[in-house]
Computed example of a mutant assay.
Amino acid sequence: MNSSMVDWDLAVSLGSRLAGEGPDVTRAEAERAVAELRAGADRSTGLVREFTGLVAAERTAPVLIVDRPGWVQANADGFATILAPVIEKLAAKKGPPSGLSLAIGSRVTGAEVGALLGFLAGKVLGQFDPFHDPSGRLLLVAPNIVHVERELDVDPTDFRLWVCLHEETHRVQFTAVPWMRDHLFGEMQAIAETMEPSRFLDDGLKRITEALKGGREGGQSLLDIIGTPEQKEIVDRVTGVMSLLEGHADVVMDGVGPQVIPSVERIRRRFNERRKGVGTLDKILRRLLGLDAKMAQYRDGAVFVRGVVDKVGMDDFNAVWERPENLPSKAEITDHAAWMARVL
C-alpha cells in the first residue's frame, strides 16, 4: 500500500508505545506462561479435532506467542492487507495514484491507526490471523493473558488452556476448511468492486477510523459511507460467517472445557462479565463493516450451532464447512431450522 496513505511504520511505533509492556512478571513467570501457552495450543489441536471432527493439515498456520508490540506489528500487516483491495480499486476508478494518495493521505495517518492498535493491543488475548500467507497464523498475547487471569483471580493453568481452546478452534476452522480464507478475502474484494470513489472520498478514510475507534455516539460505519443494497447483502453474508465462527468456538470451549479444565465454570462466569470490552481483529472488521453487535455474534452463533447439533449431531452439522454455499446467512443464524431445511 502506498506509504503516503498510511505510514505503517509510524503506526507500529506509536501503537507499540501506547500498548505498554503489560503486567510485571519475573523471567521465570514469563517463561512458564509461554511454555504453558505453547503446550496448551498443542494439546488443544487434538481436543478440538475429537470434539468437532474437523481435521487440520499438519504444519500449517503456526502458533506464535507474542507480546503487545508483536501483536501491533501483526495487525498492522493484517490491516494493510484488508485495505489493499479497497485502495487499489479506488485508485483504479479515481485515476492517477498521486491524486488519490493526496486525498486519502491527508485524512488517515499512521498516528490514527497506531492509536487504535495501541488501544486494542492491551486487551486482546489471542486471535487467528487468516490473511497471513500462506495459511494464516495463531497469535497468543502472553502479557494480556497473564493480566486477565490475575484480574479475574482464576487458576492460571486452567485459564491458559481455556483461551487456547477458543483460539485453536479458529485455527482449525481455517486450516481444516481451506477455502474459508479466500472466501472471506473475496467478500472484501467484492465490496471494493462496488465502491463509488466520489461517495467514499467525500469524507475519506477518517470517518472509517472514527468508526473503528468507536467514534462519536451514533458514529458512522463504512456502510454509512458506501452502503448500497449490493454491499449490504455482502455484509449480511459476512455477518453469518463471523457469527458461525465465533459461536462454533464458544461451543467447543464449553463442550471440551469441563472435561479438561477443572475450574471452567468459574472462568466462564467471570470472563463473560469482562468480555464486552475485549477487542480482536474480527471486532475491528465488524466495526468497519457496521457489524459491532457486541455479544450478539457469540450468543447467536452458539445458539445456531447448538440448535443444529442437538437435532442432527456434529457430523451432519459439519456440512456447513463443505462449501461456501452451505454457510448460514445472517437470517439463518437466528433460524437454524431454515438452514437445516436448505442445506440438510
Rank of each mutant, 00 (worst) to 15 (best):
I104N: 09
P130S: 00
I87T: 03
E112G: 08
L161A: 08
L102Q: 04
R107D: 00
G110D: 02
V154M: 05
L120M: 14
D129P: 07
R181N: 08
A142H: 06
P85I: 11
L139W: 05
N144M: 07
E151L: 13
S106W: 12
P130Y: 12
R160D: 06
L152S: 02
R107C: 02
R160P: 02
V108C: 10
G95C: 07
L100N: 03
D182W: 11
Q173R: 08
V163D: 10
L120C: 10
F174R: 15
V148D: 04
K123Q: 07
A91E: 10
A115S: 12
W162F: 14
H166I: 14
G99A: 08
R150C: 01
E88C: 01
Q127T: 05
E168Q: 14
D153M: 09
V163M: 15
P178W: 15
L138Q: 00
P178I: 06
F128N: 02
L116M: 02
Q127H: 03
L120K: 13
P156W: 11
D133M: 04
L138N: 01
P97A: 12
T109W: 09
K89R: 14
S135D: 13
E151M: 12
F131S: 00
R171Q: 10
E167V: 13
A176T: 11
V146M: 06
H132D: 00
A111Q: 08
E112M: 15
V148S: 00
E167K: 13
R160T: 07
V141S: 03
F159W: 09
K89E: 13
R137L: 06
V108S: 06
V177I: 15
F128H: 05
A142R: 14
R137C: 01
V113C: 01
I104Q: 15
H132I: 03
H132T: 12
P130F: 15
T157L: 12
L120R: 10
L139Q: 05
A91D: 07
V86W: 13
R160S: 02
D129H: 03
L165T: 10
A103T: 04
H147T: 02
R107T: 07
G114Q: 06
M180L: 15
R160I: 08
R160F: 12
H147N: 07
V108D: 01
G118A: 08
G99F: 14
K123M: 02
S106G: 09
V148N: 04
Q127D: 02
G95V: 13
P97S: 07
